[in-house]
Amino acid sequence: MNIKKFILFISLSGLFFSCSSIELFKERVEQKPYKENKTFVIVNKEVAIHGFEDVLMNEKIINQIERNMQNLGLTYDKERPDVVIRFSSNEDPRQKDVYQNQFPMWGMRVWDPWMFDPRFMNRGNMVSTKDYELIQLIIDFIDPKQDKMLMTITAVSEASSQKSKQKKLIKSVDKIIDAYDQHMKNS
């Protein structure tokens, strides 16, 4: 009985995590970390630069970055920061084709007791389009003392609604800050 529950859990979690794909790209590392950082500042917050057109989304990203950096043990200091953080975004509306199989589960509908289905008469595979948005969140980590880039990390994901967009962007911030933390620990 426990094995069946374990297999069900693994398959459902695999399905859940495969649907919410966020890919990270570490783009630019100009300098290796040479000290442990203790303070940070977010340029978008101090200078009122909008990384997103949506002001509410911009504030959510700022708050999430600040919260995650403080969870790493850094403090917010706009006077003498060890790390300067700047973020921007690319939001690209797109469409994709969705193909609907007219013969679900039974191949050529041989075993289907309801052979006649008027929805599928004289049609091949039906095609519809689905709107989605390709979202890139780009966060730069800058060393202000040497005026060099510590690293740039880009998170890329797709969202089909405003609610899923917000969730994916929050998860993207979490993943980017984790990647930054791993970079600082491993270098």
Rank of each mutant, 00 (worst) to 15 (best):
Ile177Leu: 09
Lys148Ser: 11
His50Trp: 00
Ser128Met: 05
Ser187Asn: 10
Ile49Ser: 15
Ile153Gln: 07
Glu91Pro: 02
Phe9Lys: 12
Val55Lys: 15
Ile153Arg: 05
Thr154Val: 07
Glu91Met: 04
Asp77Val: 02
Glu59Ala: 11
Arg123Leu: 06
Phe103Arg: 14
Met105Cys: 07
Ala179Ile: 01
Arg86Met: 06
Glu30Gln: 10
Glu91Tyr: 00
Gly14Trp: 01
Trp114Ala: 15
Val29Ala: 11
Lys4Glu: 15
Asp92Gly: 07
Met57Glu: 06
Met121Lys: 09
Ile65Pro: 09
Asp117Met: 06
Val84Glu: 14
Phe25Cys: 11
Met105Ser: 15
Asp117Pro: 07
Ser88Thr: 13
Ser18Lys: 06
Lys45Pro: 06
Phe87Tyr: 08
Asp112Arg: 08
Gly124Phe: 00
Ile22Lys: 09
Glu27Gly: 12
Ile177Lys: 14
Phe103Pro: 13
Ile42Leu: 08
Lys165Ile: 02
Gln100Glu: 14
Leu8Ile: 04
Asp143Glu: 11
Gly124Lys: 06
Val43Trp: 01
Ser18Leu: 10
Ile85Ser: 09
Met108Gly: 09
Gln102Thr: 13
Gln146Gly: 08
Ser20Arg: 05
Ile65Arg: 07
Asn63Ile: 00
Tyr76Cys: 05
Glu79Ala: 05
Met108Asn: 13
Asp140Gly: 10
Val43Pro: 08
Leu74Trp: 01
Arg119Glu: 14
Lys148Val: 08
Ala155Pro: 09
Leu134Lys: 13
Lys163Gln: 13
Pro144Glu: 11
Glu27His: 03
